[in-house]
């Protein structure tokens, strides 16, 4: 079986469907394959956000830890989902831990390299931002739904 090139793998990612071929050529130059064992930390809170990931296989959790209580899983991400947005916004530090919950394969994109290319080519930057904005808004809506705690016990008690 022939290994696919990063360029081919990027083209398969739904996240990049709105990008142009020339964009993908540029991005491919910033990308590499990455593999994580189950339980391996992909990045940790406070570390520099120098990469983002496109998950190809496996599952990753975003965790937050606080003293005196068990680690909390904020959300899990799986195949074809984007991991990491903090590379977009200064000061470029991770706010959560990302842990591979299973054997996980991903494409790692070098953020420093990407940020440079976006600054040089604002049109590319805009197209990439649009792709990210869609993901971020979608996640925001999910988080709002989570916040509603729809399955919670109704506060007031009555006949029901």
């Amino acid at each position: 079986m022939k290994h696919k090139s990063i360029r081919e793998l990027l083209a398969e990612q739904p996240f990049f469907h709105d990008l142009r071929d020339s964009d993908l050529d540029l991005l491919a130059g910033c990308g590499e394959n990455a593999h994580f064992r189950a339980g391996e930390t992909i990045f940790g809170t406070g570390e520099p956000a120098d990469y983002f990931y496109l998950i190809r296989t496996g599952r990753v959790s975003l965790d937050i830890h606080a003293p005196g209580r068990a680690d909390i899983v904020i959300s899990t991400l799986g195949p074809d989902e984007v991991l990491g947005a903090s590379w977009l916004i200064p000061p470029y530090h991770w706010n959560f831990d990302a842990i591979a919950r299973e054997e996980t394969g991903a494409i790692r994109l070098d953020a420093t390299c990407l940020r440079g290319k976006c600054e040089d080519d604002p049109a590319l930057g805009y197209r990439l931002m649009k792709s990210f904005a869609q993901v971020i808004v979608d996640r925001l809506q999910r988080v709002r739904l989570q916040l509603l705690d729809v399955y919670g016990t109704p506060a007031a008690r009555a006949n029901g």
Binding site: S61, A70, V73, G78, R142, Y151
Partner: peptide
């Protein structure tokens, strides 16, 4: 919707499973 890290399954709203 929320879990401690002992949970190895998905975390997120049920609609997020539609992506799968």
């Amino acid at each position: 919707d929320t879990a401690s890290s002992g949970w190895s399954g998905h975390v997120g709203v049920v609609t997020s499973l539609m992506d799968r």
